[in-house]
Nucleic acid binder design. Structure first.
Lengths: 205, 205, 205, 205
DNA sequence: CATGAATGAGCCTTCATTCAT
DNA sequence: AATGAATGAAGGCTCATTCAT
């Protein structure tokens, strides 16, 4: 399926180690935060020497890039079927919100790790490394969905960009809330958000 | 009033130095991010030796705590009059959103700095230091506003907590957007967000 | 006098530390060779923590640059008077050779350190850092001396460049020889080299 | 003949691998310098895994020892016929100088590699590994040649040791010069050096 | 009130070597 | 005969903090 995840040159064993390390990187980022997610601590979680990580990824930056790729992939894979099952823009939007929130609950560490990297990973010149790619792809997807709904007359009149950003932010907010209160009732949360944006996007008669 | 910020023992000059350092810490955090906001770099921006910071604040952690306090204070001070000028819950909500977005535009560095610390500052045991205090005070304030509106019949039926969080997140989203595109049209943004949450909170006839 | 050695911004104490560290770097390079001349080992010799070196020089590369500068300065200072005391090209050449060999004997570690750096210090792209500057200045000086002698008719017909290089190399050879046999009779060596190049440069009647 | 290079137990294929690796080690040393000549980089040049080198040589030190042996062998083999073709000491000296310089031009990498190792390879106690063996064999050979010439009355009166060293150093100097200017006119260089030492050794009437 | 000097812990990375396959 | 995987020591450097002045 995902031809990218097991490229030509990699053995099964190597792929397993890489997956293990990425997993531990995710857990470390989620549990201890970006600045504590050092090679040493990731290695410790994997019960492996630091050098093993270097051997498989060459660079800490590369590890984090892989974390981002992995989380993106998982999130996209998980969301796609839910989205494809719906036809009307309004239903797609509901599915999007509900799907994302559900993904958060099953992949909390993944999303927290992504968030940590997104917020903190910078290139040598000090510029953020991830913000563009992410902002582009995630918000844009929602924006297009909304614009389609406006074109079809299902949605009312509003800035698709601002609404898209609000949707995205509301979903990310669940994550931050989870960090404070891990026993949050996510079902209720999802329902409320769906209803909220239903009202906000609905065409006013 | 602000008993904490000018306690008995501090001279005027000392207070000026502290303010200068806090200001430079804010600028550094905003411009270079949490992990690059080191004592050395903050000192450099203040054209002062590292030791000056240590002398006045003892610890990096304390500097950041003061940054948080300062930004909170500014934000509250700036918002209060706008809020007090309104009477109905709906108007108060509009004023809240518009006021916050306006504050973002005039105090971008302040808010970015707050955000960096909020996301990254942890105590020695690895636990986040800021999330509770902040989540409590910011979201709770909105939540109470919304609950009051529901009690008075101005707002419809929704989870005040979830809506409060969505409001808060939407506003923070403007900040992240600003980081990507500094020339954002904030007036339009504010108008759209106000309208969005107007529709989302309005009592459905 | 040498305004460069105590520039404006440096205190007496700092200059002393710097001199001490440079001295230890020289000794380490001379005694243990380039690849063993690490920050840790230089610091150990100076009975100081690694950080002290970083504090005063920022970078290992800078330390080595200072070593080169220091040795160059010393060598030039030591040779100048000997050279100025002579008038004819032949005498100047003799003074040059004898002076350099004498400097070697009193500053063996300096010259060995210079040699180690000259041979091994490379920039990130892999290119040698010192060879040009050194080859230029040292060999050129001799070459000009020889060319002047040819122009005045004191010397015979030969490639000034090749002869200059042979002179330089013969002198450096003493250094390498010293490394093998530290109790070399340097006076004899100097006398022999002077005589050798006397014959090699003399105008053939 | 070369009992060491093809001992009983080595197959033809093994010998080929060893030669290939030695060749790549030489190229790496010459092109990138001693400290960059790591097992990994040598292996990369040979398009082979690091382990192959370990398998055939056990140790990096052994690889370098073999490099030295190989270069020595080549140099000796190349020089022998030129030397044997001459009869008088003066002609032998000329042949020696010219032959060595020519070897430099055809085997620049070999000589640079030898030089790098000679200057840098040390045993665990920090002592140079190569200087003795080399100084002994190379300089001694020239010294004997010169001494023979003095005994036969062909050469004048000078320290054979110092002259031998000057000869050796002048030749090595060509190498260093080549490193700076790869397009050197080596024929002229050889001619000049031959003439130089001709004058320096000639019996003064 | 301010500073320069120094430190030790920790960071990411490189590297020669070992080992199972 | 060859390889990939793993390791531990060491390297240069950053940083918050301590201390004497």
């Amino acid at each position: 399926m995902r031809s990218e995840s097991v490229p030509a040159g990699r053995t099964f064993l190597e792929e397993a180690r890489r997956a293990q390390i990425i997993g531990c990187a995710i857990d470390t980022l989620a549990a201890e935060g970006y600045s504590r997610a050092t090679m040493a601590r990731i290695a410790e979680r994997a019960r492996v020497s630091k050098s093993v990580i270097v051997y498989h990824f060459a660079t800490k930056e590369r590890v984090f890039e892989q974390v981002v790729a992995e989380v993106f992939q998982s999130a996209t894979d998980a969301l796609r079927p839910h989205l494809d099952a719906e036809t009307t823009p309004a239903d797609k939007l509901r599915a999007y919100i509900a799907g994302r929130v559900q993904f958060l609950s099953t992949h909390q560490a993944h999303m927290l790790a992504l968030f940590e990297i997104w917020m903190n990973l910078r290139s040598d010149d000090g510029a953020l490394r991830m913000s563009e790619a992410d902002a582009e792809s995630t918000v844009d997807a929602i924006e297009q969905l909304l614009a389609a709904g406006q074109a079809s007359g299902d949605f009312g009149d509003f800035s698709a960009r601002v609404m898209a950003m609000a949707v995205r932010q509301a979903i990310d907010g669940v994550l931050l809330q989870l960090r404070v209160d891990p026993h949050l009732d996510l079902d209720e949360y999802a329902r409320e958000l769906v209803a909220l944006f239903d009202r906000a996007t609905r065409r006013t008669s």
